[in-house]
């Protein structure tokens, strides 16, 4: 956030108003990356007039799965050869047990990488001060906007026109 920019938070009651306000803000020339919408309910993608975000989560999970597969293979099929215990002519590795271990390790890695991946994607944990409003978890839809000072009046106008319950400086809350 650069110094000479104004940031505002506006709270709405209804999702239709919010979507309308976002559209109007777009026409004012405020791009999507200057707006953050906060809700207490997951709205369907594009419900609020915004484009879908690209997520690298599936790739993180895929990479995790491959790592898990390799760890599983290493433990179940390679370590018995590395640390050979002569078991009287029996083979050190059997296919079915190796399959079980490899499978389970792959699944474990998928789970763990999904979790770590989603935290990474969300940039969590982020406890530092962040613009937020507590009314969000009470069902209000909040738009957080950053724009240059010359748009101040127009933005306020647009927000009021769309029945914003509250318009004001966003509080920096250490979450």
């Amino acid at each position: 956030m650069s110094e000479n920019e104004i940031s505002l938070v506006a709270l709405f009651e209804k999702s239709t108003d919010t979507a309308k306000a976002i559209d109007d803000l777009h026409t004012l020339g405020i791009p999507d990356d200057r707006m953050v919408v906060m809700t207490d309910v997951p709205y369907p993608e594009q419900a609020l007039g915004r484009t879908r975000e690209w997520s690298s989560l599936p790739y993180i999970v895929l990479a995790g799965a491959i790592v898990g597969l390799l760890i599983g293979l290493f433990l179940s099929a390679i370590t018995p050869h590395l640390y050979r215990l002569d078991v009287g002519g029996h083979p050190p590795v059997g296919f079915p047990p190796a399959a079980v271990i490899t499978f389970v390790f792959t699944m474990m890695a998928i789970i763990v990488s999904t979790f770590l991946g989603v935290l990474w994607e969300m940039d969590f944990p982020s406890f530092g001060p962040a613009p937020y409003h507590k009314a969000v978890t009470d069902g209000q839809l909040a738009i957080l906007i950053e724009f240059s000072p010359d748009l101040d009046d127009k933005v306020n106008q647009v927000l009021k026109a769309n029945q914003a319950d509250y318009i004001g400086e966003p509080e920096m809350i250490s979450l």
């Binding site: 709205y43 915004r50 997520s55 969590f124 944990p125 530092g128």
Partner: peptide, 16 residues
């Protein structure tokens, strides 16, 4: 963990 309920967060949570 600093959840704010932004669109991006919801989207990723759903995905996960």
């Amino acid at each position: 963990l600093g959840w704010r309920g932004t669109e991006a967060e919801w989207h990723k949570l759903h995905r996960a």
